[in-house]
Each structure stands twice: as structure tokens, then as C-alpha cells.
Design a protein around this nucleic acid. Structure first.
Length: 546
DNA sequence: CATTGTTTATTGTGAC
DNA sequence: GTCACAATAAACAATG
């Protein structure tokens, strides 16, 4: 729900879209902007993501973070990095759209301290500006910080990154995080320290520098159910650390209370979950200490838990300064994405009794719509670009040949393969007399009606898998978009499934989720401009102000 | 001194 | 309502 709200938008067309022909290959979401609806904006970051982005010289400077570190020097893969797409993206983004959003009141809890942030006042200010909208650039990714960190680490060749590299990865992949860095980077640091799933790997003398490497706990590989990185199914807790916490919290208590079923008050919970790093002040808070003991004190079982073949290596690291490469190789082997067969068997065995045991629900870690693997390289490099493209709105889901998109490695398979679009609609009630309708209906009369509706209306927010995020006031808007070549093929390529077909031209009951299936053959590029308006050929876009 | 890392506290949200 | 998870802020220490 939150995600849907954050990614909600309307199809209001920005003025600048007139200058950018919808018929051009770059046309799609860049000419659409989001209306920040009071009931939808849940992110304080999102609200402050306005003009500073455009004014900060982003295209020339964004590839370097505060540490002066470029992604090219980073440990993670930067194939198809969104950075390379940023210039055109920022240029293509409607400036009025982006600037305007910064004037809209913040509704998140983080910024409640100053100003009138009530929805009404935000709406009033926005109306005063006549630019009450936002672009995808402002959208906060649906992933938690833990997910983002996990993405970064898993995407690194050696399955571990420094803090600054994690920062850079996130900023490269998600333009949203190029703003308010102090805020979210603090959260990143907190997440790294707080969550047992992240473990520090100390630097070795041959790799001097500040800060440790951060890796994933070998047993944390199934935190995200079925590969969906939106929310963890269960917090990963290092049992050994948990024991140490318990014993440290209550020295007089028996150590073995890990299965205590006593109820915790919220305060107690807070204590329990936050006073969890007494060990971390020790140098053992490293890869070795993920087992909560010094490696030299590990027993055979614990070491084998790390990796059966790494027992000697791990001891050597601490006793004989094992090389960094050896250590990282060990970490890599421990990592779920690069498990050796024996380790996989071991984890499989562990998973049988592990609290994060994965249940079969039809999704695998690689095919879930919000799977990390859809963002990261290998099978979904194109998705990285697609996400970034859509963040900046200069790409399109239309099945254009690669040549008109980019020189980067967008595979034909992506555009040619059948695409299942799943739209989950959630209602948003608007009491405004001006309905921020998402339906830029070609008929002016109807548009007028929709935008001047004096009655409270129901608005629907939608998420479309494959990374595209839309709102829909009604399904006809969806079809309208499809007819205009925003998505694959033509209107005929979209088929509304029963029983949703009846809602084709009306608002959909809120309890219904709508699935739209595209079964396309080789996609067609949008038709060239021709004389005479047509529903299949977009006309100049109106500028809808609310 | 800037960055990195730890800890505490508060608040919000969703599942149950 | 309770609980777990997450986001955020802030203070502080450690480190290069």
C-alpha cells in the first residue's frame, strides 16, 4: 500500500511535453508527471526532491559522491549504470514539473516540524503554483534500506562493499537517493550496524582505507521472501549474537532463554532489538564474529557453518593475515548467490529448520516482480536501465528497437517477450472539487468534466510490474496509454480479462485488482507522424493544472 | 576534520 | 491492541 502510494502518479501532461513529441522514441513518462496527492505522499524525502536536483548540476556531478568516488572505481558492477543515462534524462525531464514539487508541503513524519504541512495547505499551495505535480524522478523506490544494502552487496563481485560503495551503488541505481544524502545515509549506517544480516569484514593491510567492508551473513540469504525485496519476511537474527545480547542484558539470567515466549512491551522490544551490539565494539564484530565468537575460538561446527572448506582459511586470516582475496573468496563462497554445491546443500539442510524457511508460492528469487534480480545485472540489466529510464521518463515501455533507446545492452528479448502487466489498484479518495484525474482523455468535454468534477471521486493508484508505476483513474486511461504507444503495441494488444472487462470504461471497484495481459509478438515502433489526429497518434499534450 | 560506526529514541505501518 | 519491521533523527565514539 505504501509503495503504491509512493509511486502513484497521474497522467497529467506537462507543458513541456508539447515540445517533446509523443511520437518520438523518447516519449513516454517524461511527458507525464505525478500529482502529489495529499493522501499519497508518505515520504518526507519525496517531498523535498524538487528544484535542488535540477539546480545542482546533477548531470555533470552526479557520478561522484561526497567521497569523490566514482562508480567506476567501485566494487560493484556498473554495467548499464543509470548514471550514463542521467544527462539525457535530466534534460528531458520537464523542468516545471520537477521544480514545482519542491513547493509542495511535506507530509512525512520526518518534516513535521515546520510549516503548515496539512494536506489542504499543500494542495492550496500547489494550486497556487498551478504546478501540482511531480515526476518519477521524485518517486522513492519501494525497497527498504536493508534491501538496498543487500542489493549493493550482492551485486558486488566479491560480495562485500565499503560504506561509501554502498552509498554510490544506491545513488547510481536510484536517482531518488541523490538527494537528502545525509538523511538516508545515516539510515544506511544504522541499518548496517543494527541488523545482524550485515557483517563487517575488516580491511587487510594490502587494502588500506577507512571503514570496513560490509558483507552479508551467510545465513541471511532468504530474508526476502521469494526474491521479493520489498519487505523482509522475518528479521534475520544471529542466534549467537542473540545469546550474547541476552546474557549481556541480564548477566544473572541463564544464557539459554532464546526461545523465551515471554511477551515484550514495546519498550522492552526496543531495548531488546537495539541493545544488540555490545560485541560490535570489539574487533570480533567481523566476519568471524557473525558467529559471535572470535574465529580463533570457533569450534569446528561453527566454522563449518561458515564454509566447510574455509576452516583453515578463516583461521589463517586471523592468525596469519590471510590475503584479502582469500577472505573475499571465502565470503563469496559463503554468499547465497555464489554458493558452492556443498554449501548449498548445507544451507538447504539449515533451511529445513531455519526460521526464514522459504515456502513455495510460485515465485522464485529471480522471477518475482520486485525481485532484486530484476534490477541487478545478468538477467535483468535492461531492467536497471528501464528503472532509471522511467525514473527520468525519457524511455518508454514501448517495444522500440534497441537502436532508438540506447546503445547499452538492452536485449531484444526484453521488448519482444510477452509481458504480463499486473495492475494493482488502490483507492484514494479525493474531496477536492478539482479531481486530479489521470485520464487525459482525448475528448475535451470529457476531460473538462473529469477535471471539474464537484463530487468526491475515487482515484486509483496502480503498480505495474516490470518497474512501471502508474495511477489509473479508470481503465480506459490504461487503454488510452496503450493506444498511444506508451506500452507495447497497440490497443489491440491489451486484453482485459473477465470479469474486469466490464470496468473497461469506468472506475474499478476498489476491492478488485486488475490484471492486464499483453500477449505480443514482435513489437512495433510507434507510427510516424501523419496528418490528422487519431486516437492512435497522440496529439499535443494539454497542460493540466489543478 | 570528515567519515565511519554504534547506540538510543521515536514514530509509522502492516500483519495478526 | 500487540508485535515486528522499518524509517528517521540524533548523539557520540572511533578512525584515517
Amino acid at each position: 500500500m505504501l509503495t503504491q502510494k509512493l509511486y502513484s502518479e497521474t497522467t497529467t501532461m506537462a507543458t513541456s511535453s508539447n515540445a517533446m513529441s509523443p511520437m518520438t522514441p523518447t516519449y513516454s513518462m517524461n511527458s507525464m508527471s505525478c500529482v502529489s496527492m495529499p493522501s499519497m505522499n508518505c515520504s518526507p524525502q519525496a517531498a523535498s526532491f524538487g528544484s535542488s536536483m535540477l539546480n545542482s548540476g546533477m548531470p555533470g556531478s552526479m557520478a561522484m559522491n561526497g567521497n569523490g568516488m566514482t562508480s567506476s572505481s567501485m566494487g560493484y558492477t556498473t554495467i548499464g549504470s543509470p548514471i550514463s543515462n542521467m544527462n539525457a534524462a535530466c534534460m528531458a525531464a520537464p523542468i516545471g514539473t520537477m521544480n514545482s514539487y519542491g513547493t509542495v508541503g511535506t507530509l512525512g513524519r520526518g518534516d513535521l516540524g515546520g510549516g503548515d504541512t496539512s494536506p489542504n495547505s499543500a494542495l492550496q499551495r500547489a494550486r497556487a503554483d498551478k504546478t501540482y505535480r511531480r515526476s518519477y524522478t521524485h518517486a522513492k523506490p519501494p525497497y527498504s534500506y536493508i534491501s538496498l544494502i543487500t542489493m549493493a552487496i550482492q551485486n558486488s563481485p566479491q560480495k562485500m562493499l565499503t560504506l561509501s560503495e554502498i552509498y554510490q551503488f544506491i545513488m547510481d541505481l536510484f536517482p531518488f537517493y541523490r538527494q537528502n544524502q545525509q538523511r538516508w545515509q545515516n539510515s544506511i549506517r544504522h541499518s548496517l550496524s543494527f541488523n545482524d544480516c550485515f557483517v563487517k569484514v575488516p580491511r587487510t593491510p594490502d587494502k588500506p582505507g577507512k571503514g570496513s567492508f560490509w558483507s552479508l551473513h551467510p545465513d541471511s540469504g532468504n530474508m526476502f521472501e521469494n526474491g521479493c525485496y520489498l519487505r523482509r519476511q522475518k528479521r534475520f537474527k544471529d542466534e549467537k549474537k542473540e545469546v550474547m545480547r541476552q546474557s549481556h542484558k541480564s548477566p544473572s539470567h541463564s544464557v539459554d532463554n532464546s526461545n523465551s515466549s515471554e511477551k515484550k512491551t514495546p519498550l522492552q522490544h526496543g531495548d531488546d532489538t537495539h541493545k544488540t551490539h555490545h560485541l560490535d565494539k570489539n574487533p570480533e564484530n567481523t566476519l568471524g564474529s557473525m558467529l559471535s565468537i572470535h574465529p580463533s575460538k570457533m569450534d569446528v561446527e561453527q566454522m563449518n557453518l561458515l564454509h566447510p572448506n574455509d576452516l583453515n582459511m578463516h583461521q589463517q586470516h586471523h592468525q596469519q593475515n590471510m590475503s584479502h582475496e582469500e577472505l573475499t573468496a571465502m565470503v563469496s563462497r559463503c554468499h547465497p548467490l555464489s554458493l558452492s554445491s556443498d554449501h548449498q546443500a548445507m544451507l538447504h539442510h539449515n533451511s529445513m529448520n531455519h526460521p526464514l524457511k522459504q515456502e513455495h508460492t510460485g515465485y522464485t528469487p529471480s522471477n518475482h516482480p520486485f525481485s532484486i534480480t530484476r534490477l541487478l545485472p545478468n538477467e535483468s540489466k535492461s531492467d536497471i536501465k528501464m528503472y532509471a529510464d522511467m525514473q527520468y521518463g525519457y524511455n518508454t515501455l514501448s517495444p522500440l528497437p534497441n537502436s532508438v533507446h540506447s546503445h547499452t545492452s538492452l536485449g531484444n528479448d526484453y521488448y519482444n517477450s510477452p509481458l504480463l502487466i499486473c495492475v494493482v489498484l488502490t483507492p484514494i479518495i479525493h474531496s477536492s472539487p478539482f479531481t486530479p484525474c489521470v485520464h487525459p482523455c482525448p475528448e475535451p468535454e470529457k476531460r473538462q468534466f473529469l477535471h471539474r468534477s464537484p463530487k468526491p471521486t475515487v482515484h486509483y493508484s496502480g503498480i505495474i510490474y516490470r518497474g512501471a508505476h502508474f495511477n489509473f483513474g479508470c481503465l480506459s486511461a490504461l487503454r488510452w496509454r496503450l493506444r498511444r504507444g506508451m506500452w507495447e503495441g497497440t490497443a489491440g494488444a491489451v486484453r482485459l480479462r473477465p470479469p474486469f472487462r466490464q470496468y473497461q470504461h469506468q472506475s474499478v471497484p476498489e476491492e478488485l485488482a486488475v490484471k492486464v495481459e499483453y500477449k505480443g509478438a514482435a513489437p512495433l515502433p510507434p507510427p510516424p507522424p501523419s496528418s490528422g489526429p487519431s486516437v492512435l497518434q497522440p496529439r499535443a499534450q494539454p497542460d493540466f493544472n489543478f
